[in-house]
Structure formats: C-alpha cells, structure tokens
C-alpha cells in the first residue's frame, strides 16, 4: 500500500518536471529558464527522497542536502550574471 502511494507521488513529481522542462525549452526570456531550472532542482530533491524511501535506504540523504546547496549556488550565480553581466567581481566598490 505504502509503495503504491510512493509510486503515485513519483509519477506526479515526474509529470511536474515535464511541465518545467517545457518552460525550460520554450521560456521566452532567460529568467524564465533560470526559475525553471531552480524548480527542477527542487523536484529532483523530491524524487531522490521518494526513491530513498522506496529503496528503504538512508544512503541518499547526504546527496539530497548536497543537491539543495548546489542548486542554490547555481541559481545565485545565474541571477548575478543576469543582473550584472559578471559572476565574480574583482572589487565591488569601484
């Protein structure tokens, strides 16, 4: 019973990732694509959590936290590139 619930929720998350993939390909502006990528990262975390429950293991838990951190850093880097044109500044007081 619990396994069926997990499989249904995996299916739902996968369908929502397909919707985000549509926005990533079609998205008219760059910020649309960045937001789609960020949300895809969150959905990947959900898929990893559901898979680790389905396989009954705790080996994926470090990976979940790692993916959250990396997705945050990536989104910040993309947003800074869109806002300023460079990701890492030499001296911001200039």
């Amino acid at each position: 019973m619990f396994e069926i619930v997990l499989q249904i929720s995996l299916l739902c998350v996968s369908i929502s990732m397909l919707g985000l993939l549509y926005r990533l390909i079609k998205g008219p502006t760059v910020p649309d694509r960045v937001v789609a990528l960020d949300a895809m990262g969150i959905n990947l975390i959900a898929i990893m959590a559901l898979t680790s429950m389905l396989l009954d293991t705790t080996a994926y838990l470090e990976g979940i936290l790692l993916l959250g951190i990396l997705s945050f850093i990536g989104t910040v880097a993309f947003s800074k590139f869109i806002e300023k044109g460079e990701v890492i500044e030499n001296d911001r007081d200039l």
């Binding site: 990976g63 790692l66 910040v76 880097a77 890492i88 030499n90 911001r92």
Partner: peptide, 24 residues
C-alpha cells in the same frame, strides 16, 4: 557516502558562495 573529494568540492562551494555575494 562521501569522502575527501565531495567534501573538498562542498568546501570550495562555500567559498564560491562567499565570492558570489562579496568580491575577490
């Protein structure tokens, strides 16, 4: 799971986050 490689990448990720919000 983990070890020296992932830990090192994560530590440099923290320094990259500092570089992103401040400057070099």
């Amino acid at each position: 799971p983990g070890g020296g490689f992932v830990g090192g990448l994560l530590a440099s990720g923290a320094i990259v986050l500092l570089l992103l919000s401040y400057d070099i």
